[in-house]
Amino acid sequence: MNLKTYLSSFLLTLLILFCSSEASYSQNQFKALVFSKTKGFRHQSIPDGVVALKKLARDNVFQIYTTEDEDYITDKNLAGYDVIILMSTTGTIFNADQKKSIEKFVQSGKGIVGIHSATDTEYDWPWFTKLIGAQFLNHPHQQTLKLNVVDRNHPSTYHLPEKWVWSDEIYAFKNFNPDVNVLITADENTYDAKDGMGDFHPMAWTNEYDGGRIFYTALGHTDWAFQDDNFMKHIMGGIWWAAKGYPVD
């Protein structure tokens, strides 16, 4: 094989590989941004959660990008995503321009997923409180409890039993948005609730707000939650719904 033939063959191989890569890229269902910035308490489970979300993306054919850089939150950058996943964020993490970019993102019909302490975020941003559905109030020590799956007609709960025994840090909430659709509640008779919420204690919900969609789960405090198949299916169903916006019968 002469040099000209070799180079032609080599370039053809590179072209095939490039086209194959582009085809694979284009087959992703949607694109998710995982944002895990904290300016309050930082959960030890965040790295485990980020790794689990990357695996979820690989196994379920969607694209994912992770960052803790709030300067990445711009109109231009967010335009390329279908869903933002707030991975146990805490505190005041966005400036005024970044808040506007997120509002535009939601108003354009896109989705937000909040995991665990996403409700412990941006207390002074009323729009976000309405969107996410509540604000963190308190929690007792980590315990095992019975969760009631009150709506199994959602991708995040299709697979769950009506009574789900789970161990976690059980959040109670304030400023709860009554317009959300509650998926899971905590049975306060099955654990030491202390200053809980009483007979109606939401733990996971969806919300269609200001043109977009929110899925929130209060679960996910521990490292090992992100190794649990039921929990990761719960997360995947929420991400899929928030990103795609398909109706759920």
Rank of each mutant, 00 (worst) to 15 (best):
I93R: 05
T157I: 01
D71V: 01
K55H: 06
D228K: 12
V150S: 02
S108E: 15
H154E: 02
D199P: 06
Q63R: 10
D187K: 04
F200W: 12
S167Q: 14
S88K: 13
Y72F: 15
T119Q: 09
H201S: 15
I115D: 04
K55Q: 12
T5H: 06
P247K: 14
K244P: 06
L15D: 04
P47W: 02
Q98G: 12
T217Y: 07
H201A: 13
I235C: 11
V165Q: 06
T121P: 09
F94M: 14
G212R: 08
A57D: 02
F18Q: 02
I16D: 00
Q27S: 15
Y209S: 14
D124I: 05
K100D: 03
W241F: 07
A79Q: 15
I170V: 11
V83G: 03
T92P: 00
M87Q: 14
E68C: 00
D69L: 01
P140I: 12
W164N: 02
E162D: 07
V150P: 03
E103F: 04
E188S: 11
T190A: 13
Q27V: 01
I170E: 04
L160T: 04
L145G: 03
K233T: 05
L219C: 06
P47Y: 07
S156V: 00
P247S: 13
L3F: 08
K31Q: 06
L33M: 10
L14N: 03
K130F: 05
N189I: 03
L3Q: 10
Q44C: 01
E70Q: 10
S117R: 01
Y216D: 09
Q143R: 06
G133D: 05
N28S: 07
L160R: 02
S167E: 12
I112L: 09
K104G: 10
A204R: 03
I85W: 01
S20F: 00
A57N: 04
